[in-house]
Design a protein around this nucleic acid. Structure first.
Lengths: 199, 199
DNA sequence: GTCTATATACAGATAGAC
DNA sequence: GTCTATCTGTATATAGAC
C-alpha cells in the first residue's frame, strides 16, 4: 500500500530519492540535510521530493526504515563452535557490524541522545536487536554452564549485559578518538569475558 | 580579560544570559535552541545577546565552558580504603557524577556523535577527564598488584579501560531506556571487576 | 510525475536611537 | 548596555503549468 499510486516504471525515482536521503541523513544528520541537497543529489527538484513524501519528517522516517534494513545478526556463523568461541565470535560480529555501519549507528545514537524526534518504531527496533543480542549471549553462557564447561556462580543474564555494555563502551570510545586504538581492547574483552567464565 | 569592558555592576546580565543559554543548550541541543528563546528566558532582547557574545557559535562555546565547570573527580574520597574498595568507590563516583549531570553529559555525547561542531577545547577537556579517571583506576590496580592483593597476570591499563568501557556502556543503556534498571548491573560490575582481580 | 516560480516562516545578524 | 526595527539568507512547503 503506497500513499501515491504508481505507474509502470515502478518507483524508480522515488527509490533514488529515498536512497540519497538515507545516505545524507546518516552522513550529516537531520538538521544539516536540507531538502535542496537531497533534491540536487537525486537529480530532481525539491518539489518532487515533497510530492513523493509529503514532508521532510515523513521522508526522514522512510529513510530510517531503509537504513535499518541491514540490521540483523547472522547466527549461522556460530554453528559447531564451543561456547567460549561462540562468545568471542559474537563479540566480533557485533563489532564488525558497527564498524561497517558507522554512519547509521552514529545517526541512531544521535537520535536517541538528542531527545527530540524519537521515532518510536525505530527506537523500538534497535532495542529489539539489542535484546536479541543479549539473549543470544545469555543463552550461550547458560548452555556452557549446563555442559559443565562454565562455572555456575555467574548470572548469565547479567554477564551478558556486562559484556554488551563493555562492547558499547569500546565503540563509543572509538567514536571519540577517530583513530582506531580499540582493537587491542576488543581482544582483551574477548579474553577476559571468556576466561572468567571457565570452570 | 573580557571582550567587552564592563561597568560597575559587573556582568550580571551577561551572566544571566550565559546561565540560561547553558541550560537551554543542554536541554534541547544547539539546533533546537534559537537565540530568541535564550533572549526571552533571560528577559532581554536578541540584540543584547548578540552584543554580549557576537554570534550564536561563540555563545555556545561560552556556555559549554560553564557547563564543564563541575566536571572533576574528588579523589579525597578514596583515602584509607583498600584497593578493591577504592575501585568500587571510583565506579560509584563516576556513575553518580553522570547521574547528576545527565543534561550536559547528554549534550557532550551528542556533540561528539554528531560530528559537526566539535569544539576542540571542550572535547579535549572531556577526554582529559576520561584519561584521568582511567589512570586513577590503572594506578590502583597496579598498586594492588604490588601489595600482593591483586593477581599479577592482568594488565592494569587494559583492565582500567575495560571497566571504564563497561561503565560507559551501562550509562548509554540508561539513556536509551529512561527507567532506571541499571542499578543492578552497576552492582554486578563492581563485584565482577574487583573479584577477577583478587589474587 | 515532474518542473519553475512563489509563498511563508523563521533563523542569525546589523543599524541606529536612547 | 539595552532597545526596536530591519536586513538577509535559507528552509519547508504550495500553486499551477506541462
Amino acid at each position: 500500500m503506497r500513499e501515491h499510486p504508481q505507474g509502470d516504471q515502478a518507483g524508480q525515482t522515488r527509490d533514488r530519492i529515498l536512497a540519497t536521503a538515507a545516505r545524507l541523513f546518516a552522513e550529516h544528520g537531520y538538521e544539516h540535510t536540507p531538502l535542496s541537497h537531497v533534491a540536487r543529489e537525486s537529480q530532481v527538484s525539491k518539489a518532487l521530493v515533497l510530492w513523493h513524501f509529503d514532508s521532510k519528517e515523513k521522508l526522514f522516517r522512510a529513510a530510517l526504515g531503509r537504513t535499518l534494513e541491514p540490521y540483523f545478526i547472522d547466527v549461522d556463523d556460530l554453528a559447531g563452535l564451543a561456547e567460549g568461541a561462540q562468545i568471542e565470535r559474537l563479540i566480533e560480529l557485533f563489532y564488525e557490524f558497527v564498524r561497517d555501519n558507522v554512519y547509521s549507528v552514529r545517526l541512531f545514537f544521535g537520535l536517541i541522545l538528542n531527545g527530540e524526534r524519537r521515532p518510536d518504531d525505530v527506537v523500538e527496533r534497535v532495542n529489539e536487536l539489542y535484546a536479541i543480542f543479549r539473549s543470544l549471549l545469555a543463552d550461550i553462557i547458560a548452555s556452557g554452564q549446563l555442559s559443565g564447561r562454565f562455572r555456575t556462580d555467574v548470572e548469565p543474564r547479567l554477564d551478558a549485559s556486562l559484556i554488551l555494555a563493555a562492547l558499547v563502551g569500546i565503540l563509543i570510545e572509538r567514536f571519540m578518538h577517530d583513530e582506531d586504538q580499540s582493537a587491542e581492547l576488543l581482544t582483551y574483552l574477548k579474553q577476559t569475558a571468556v576466561r572468567r567464565l571457565i570452570a
